[in-house]
Amino acid sequence: MTPFDRLKKLADKQGLSINDVEAKIGLGKNTLYSWKRKVPSGTNLTKVADFFDVSTDYLLGRDHQGTRTADLTDDDVIFTYQGKPLSKEDKELIKRLMNGKD
């Protein structure tokens, strides 16, 4: 699987086209399609990894899990669901549910 294949899979999961992703992260049209035939630049690779909250190693095929970890109590981390940030209330609800408290 190529970096483009991984990118496409991530975009499809969120219902986005490759052009949508390019627009959202400020890249020119068809920039990401070039990943089909060449290794992505470090800058663009980082932008895509940050957008999808995966590691650059995942996009390059060196890490198969693709996720980064963070603690729900870390206020400096923005947690998202389907590309939308979770509110403080949502984070508190998740913590309560994970601790077995309704």
Rank of each mutant, 00 (worst) to 15 (best):
E22M: 05
Q65W: 15
N19W: 12
T56F: 03
S34Q: 13
A11K: 03
T56N: 05
S41G: 10
D90G: 12
A70Q: 06
P85V: 02
L27S: 03
T31I: 09
E92I: 10
D20W: 04
M98T: 11
E89H: 08
P85H: 05
K29I: 09
D76P: 01
G66R: 10
M98K: 14
A49Q: 07
F52E: 04
L93P: 03
T31D: 08
R68E: 09
K9L: 12
L7Q: 03
W35N: 03
K13T: 13
N30H: 10
F4G: 03
V39A: 12
T43L: 07
K29P: 03
N99F: 11
T56L: 01
G61W: 02
V39W: 10
A23Q: 12
F79G: 01
E89C: 04
I18W: 02
N99A: 14
K36E: 14
Y33A: 12
D12Q: 06
R37M: 10
A23V: 07
G28C: 07
Q14N: 08
V39Y: 11
K8S: 09
L10A: 10
L32I: 03
V54K: 11
T31L: 08
R96H: 09
V48I: 03
L27M: 08
K13W: 14
D5Y: 01
D102S: 15
S87M: 02
V39G: 07
V48S: 04
D75N: 15
A23H: 11
P3G: 04
N99E: 14
L45K: 01
L27G: 01
V39S: 14
A11T: 05
P85T: 01
L93G: 06
T80Q: 12
